[in-house]
Amino acid sequence: MKQIDLDHLVQRVVEELSKKSQEAIPFPEEKELGVKNPHNREVLEQAMRRTPARIGIGRAGTRMKTTSYLQFRIDQAAAHDAVMKQIEPAWLAELGLPELYTRAKDMQEYLMNLDSGRFLSEESVRWLEQNGDKHKDVQIIISDGLSTSACEACIPDLLPSLLQGLALKNVSVAKPLFIHRGRVWVQDHVASIVRCKVVISLIGERPGLATAESLSAYMIYQPNESTVESDRTVISNIHRGGTPPIEAGAYLADLLADILRVQASGVAYAQLRVK
């Protein structure tokens, strides 16, 4: 073999090898059927389609298989990262709602000091006093909470559907507000300023593994100093894999109209509704 051929060969082998190492590992995102020799594969597949829960994943001894273990850790890592994600300014601009702030100056303060997210900042209080729509039936609040992804994914469908539903029922609605870093109880503060009958907050939930896009709606009828948690009506798990946003909007409109009718929310509403 000539020297030149050998060099050429070595070079080609090196190129091939580096090509291989540059190939990315495609990691599966779908649940894997991991049960060895299932009793009825079709039944198992059907069950796996019926729920986002991690079933049918099989086992290594009593432990998870490697792929499902890594999928779990990846989903958890993504959920953990999602908490700190900022809302897209362009998305907010397109939404076109007044932007208010709580007393929480940043995410860290918001996470560690509950009260900071429960009250509007002084500046936002002044703005709302001057510009908010007063004495309406319903005040809608949208807040990023613990998941900006939930707002971005759900609000574009949910809000129009909710507004349309309320309009059909002749319910008067104040201009919706976007509140940065708001907790549920900020709705009490807002209600005390705009003096609406019912206030509804649409808040991004803490991200789970199955979805970081879950939104919840908290409603309360005329909150005051003696308001307690069980006075709030809650609808959670609004997202593609739960209650779809459009459907949720229509449902919430019905619910708000009913809360206005019985003049109560939370446990008291549930009791009155039964009677």
Binding site: T51, P52, A53, R54, I55, I57, R59, T62, R63, M64, S68, F72, D75, Q76, E205, R206, P207, G208, L209, A210, T211, S214, N237, G241
Partner: peptide, 24 residues
């Protein structure tokens, strides 16, 4: 909880696998 991931409450808890493991 299936795979330790509660798909409704969005938190992690002990899984069916962990349960069987703790027993063994």
């Amino acid at each position: 909880v299936p795979g330790g991931d509660d798909v409704m409450l969005s938190y992690q808890d002990t899984s069916y696998h962990d349960d069987a493991s703790l027993r063994e």
